[in-house]
Write a protein that binds this DNA or RNA. Structure first.
Lengths: 192, 192
DNA sequence: GTGAAATTAGACCGATCGGTCTAATAATTT
DNA sequence: AAATTATTAGACCGATCGGTCTAATTTCAC
């Protein structure tokens, strides 16, 4: 992997493990085996740009999961179950140290970091849109609400999993997918 | 408010807004209007002890919510709705800058901070236990699973609310409470 | 092979980090 | 009033923070 990508990957990993503020540039550089010059060569915007790129790379990670897990499942229920499995695998591989970077950064971002907050929204938008499109393709009604509902429960489960160091909440989520898909999530006051 | 409590409150607020690592002692002291000596007088354990206390204070905040919102509602559904309202009020009061400190700190904590991770678990334990006891009092079955389920959805909704700066996910959660209470959350393989 | 561009290397910067320490002051006890 | 304790005050510490800058080196084009 080239230096630029290595920096992004290391940054992404550290952010998922301990957040944005606790991740120092020197630690990133040490793990990537690069000097400071390389960082500012590839990312003139410094730490913030690097973090934004790390968030963007999470989009690719999500896209990979969509591709591999949805292709192998014919039903919407199977597809969503696959996505949860994708997160379970990731969680176990990291020994429950890696959460969702979107959530982690979202909870750390504030009005002082508008660029970060926007990047967070963008990735979440992508996630919701991808899931919605998938659900629509599978013939679901109220797709966007269902997608949001699924992600909300997934994010909540990921936090619980992190706190108690167990994948149980995600395993439980898999059992609830059928309900999520069946529930009527269309807003009471029509939105579209 | 005395100096000690002021330090805890300021710390709790900053943590909820931007997390643990990004919250500096100097900022805490400036907002509390106290010198460094006071901090280490009351909290010899330094920043970590202060954060643990801030997390503990969140237990009190939760307990207040339980008291005020559950007393005023006779049904379990009404009680949980009240809790969600409690979070909505808090979120709006902070202009969507204050998340759940448990989640925020949980996503920032790792093996290097065992004391923090334990404090996070302790507050979450308290939360789950309180809700379980309430549900049992209201005659619910599968109380603990239902409590966990509710909290997971609340945490997920809080993240979404933070990202999009809207209380909509929490408003939606209120509409789902009836379903959460009705669903069978007892584990497939009995746990107790 | 030579010149230009891309990349690596790391010294250096001021600011801030969490933490320690001593002294002054305020409050309380006797 | 004197002695004791609790609290405030802030100078100071080494370490690290994110960031800048100049060279050295490597890569690549011609």
């Amino acid at each position: 992997m080239n230096s630029r990508d290595r920096l992004i990957q290391v940054t992404a990993r550290l952010i998922r493990e301990k957040g944005m503020a606790a991740t120092g540039l020197s630690e990133i550089l040490a793990l990537a085996g690069l000097p400071k010059g390389s960082l500012y060569h590839y990312f003139p915007g410094g730490k913030e740009e690097l973090i934004r790129e790390a968030l963007q790379s999470y989009k690719n990670w999500l896209a990979e999961g969509f591709k591999s897990k949805m292709k192998g499942n014919s039903t919407a229920e199977g597809g969503l179950t696959g996505i949860v499995d994708y997160f379970i695998e990731d969680l176990k591989a990291s020994q429950f140290t890696a959460g969702c970077p979107i959530a982690t950064v979202a909870l750390e971002s504030n009005a002082d970091l508008p660029g970060i907050a926007m990047a967070v929204r963008e990735v979440m938008d992508y996630w919701i849109a991808s899931l919605s499109a998938y659900l629509q393709y599978k013939g679901m009604a109220g797709k966007r609400c269902t997608a949001e509902e699924f992600i909300i429960q997934l994010e909540g489960a990921l936090i619980m999993a992190r706190i108690y160091q167990t994948s149980a909440p995600l395993e439980k989520l898999k059992l609830k997918i059928k309900n999520i898909l069946q529930d009527d999530h269309t807003p009471q006051i029509a939105k579209l």
